[in-house]
C-alpha cells in the first residue's frame, strides 16, 4: 500500500546525515593537512574507507529499494499521479490499513536494510583492519 514510504523517509534522514558527516570529514582533513590536528571527529578511519562512504552504501540501498518498490506500487495501481497520490488514502478504512502496513512491513523493511548495512560495515572494518595489520607485518619483516 505505502510501506515503501518508511524506508524513503529513512533515506532522506540518512542522506542529510551523510552530507553533515562529509562536511566534518572535509574540515577534519583540512585541519590535519594544516597541522592543526585537533581531529575530534575521526573519519578517514585509520584503515581506509571514510564513514561517509559507508553511509552512502546505506543511502543507495534505501533509495534504490524505495524507488523500485514505488514502481511496484505504481504497477499495482496503488499510487496515482493526482491527489492524494495513494489510492489507500482516499477513504479512512483503507487509510487505517495503510498506516498499519507502514508501521509493520514498512518499519521492518527499514530495520532489515539498516541491520544488513550494519553487517556490511562490520565485515568491511574487519577486512580493512586485517589488510592493515598484514601490511604492518610485511613492513616489519622487510
Amino acid at each position: 500500500m505505502a510501506c515503501f514510504l518508511v524506508p524513503t523517509a529513512e533515506a532522506v534522514v540518512t542522506t542529510i546525515i551523510t552530507k553533515v558527516v562529509q562536511a566534518k570529514e572535509k574540515k577534519a582533513g583540512i585541519e590535519k593537512a594544516e597541522g592543526l590536528e585537533k581531529v575530534e571527529f575521526s573519519t578517514e578511519g585509520k584503515h581506509g574507507t571514510p564513514f561517509s562512504k559507508k553511509l552512502k552504501w546505506l543511502n543507495s540501498m534505501l533509495w534504490g529499494g524505495s524507488v523500485l518498490l514505488a514502481f511496484e506500487h505504481l504497477w499495482h495501481g496503488e499510487i496515482t499521479p493526482f491527489f492524494p497520490f495513494l489510492t489507500a488514502a482516499a477513504n479512512p478504512e483503507d487509510a487505517a490499513e495503510m498506516l498499519h502496513e507502514m508501521a509493520t512491513s514498512g518499519v521492518a523493511m527499514a530495520v532489515l536494510v539498516t541491520v544488513v548495512w550494519g553487517g556490511i560495515v562490520i565485515v568491511s572494518n574487519v577486512i580493512e583492519k586485517r589488510a592493515a595489520s598484514a601490511g604492518e607485518e610485511a613492513e616489519v619483516r622487510s
Partner: peptide, 13 residues
Amino acid sequence: FMFWGASLMWLVD
C-alpha cells in the same frame, strides 16, 4: 545496492 535494497524489502513483504 539498488537490487539488494529492493530484494530485502520484498523479502519482508
